[in-house]
Amino acid sequence: MTSETIQDRPEIGKSTTFDGVTTNYHDIGSGDPILLVHGSGPGVTSWANWRLNMPVFAEEFRVIAPDMLGFGYSDSIGAITDKRVWTDQLVRLLDELGLERVSMVGNSFGGGVTLAFMIAHPDRVHRAVLMGAAGLEFPLTPALDFVWGYEPSREAMHASLKMLAWDQSRLTDDLIDS
């Protein structure tokens, strides 16, 4: 991939490979580390989930935002039925980056992964913020069923995002296209 192509694709950050599996991640700023764990849904990437937050956090912190396995530009390894796969991915990434302890922010699915990570590795988490964390069983709403049953198209992406965004003015063409 040429550098021009990468510049045109800001969602592609750095990458690391362990156990034959590649993780795409963003690593910006300096200071105490914050690990941002994205939600799930059609077309989700760490960039799509956190692109507006990362530069603000990076003014004071080192921000690490990976694409979780099966999402974005990280490898897909088939159906994952155990959160341990994602918590292990985060442990390996933190080890690779030489980070013993981080604060975490988890959004929806990422909140569930953050909870699982905190349970499995409490000594590696300084603080955590959970946003709409998925952690318990719950009834499937029509909106969630639509988002999880997403059939790729620009129109379906726009409809999905409309169900997820409180502030509809943030649903820009750039966001829908990304």
Rank of each mutant, 00 (worst) to 15 (best):
M1R: 13
T2H: 08
T2V: 04
E4H: 03
T5K: 12
R9G: 02
I12N: 05
G13E: 07
S15T: 14
T17A: 09
G20M: 07
T22R: 13
N24A: 08
Y25E: 04
D27K: 03
I28E: 13
D32C: 03
D32E: 15
I34V: 15
L36V: 01
L36M: 06
G39P: 07
P42Y: 10
T45D: 02
L52Q: 12
P55E: 09
P55N: 06
V56A: 14
E59N: 10
F61I: 02
F61E: 03
R62W: 00
V63K: 01
V63P: 00
A65M: 03
P66E: 07
P66K: 06
D67W: 06
M68F: 08
L69C: 04
G70I: 04
G72F: 11
Y73P: 01
S76K: 13
S76D: 12
A79L: 10
I80T: 07
I80L: 05
Q89L: 08
Q89Y: 05
L93Q: 01
E96W: 08
L97E: 03
L97P: 02
L99W: 03
R101Y: 00
S103W: 00
V105A: 12
T114Q: 02
F117P: 01
A120H: 09
A120C: 09
P122F: 12
D123P: 00
R124L: 04
A128W: 01
A128D: 00
A128H: 02
L130H: 08
A133F: 05
G135E: 09
L136E: 10
L136G: 06
E137T: 11
E137W: 08
F138D: 09
T141H: 04
L144T: 13
L144K: 09
D145N: 15
V147D: 12
E151A: 12
P152D: 14
S153K: 11
S153H: 14
R154G: 05
M157G: 13
S160N: 11
D167T: 05
D167G: 06
Q168W: 06
L171W: 11
D173Q: 15
D174T: 13
L175K: 10
I176P: 02
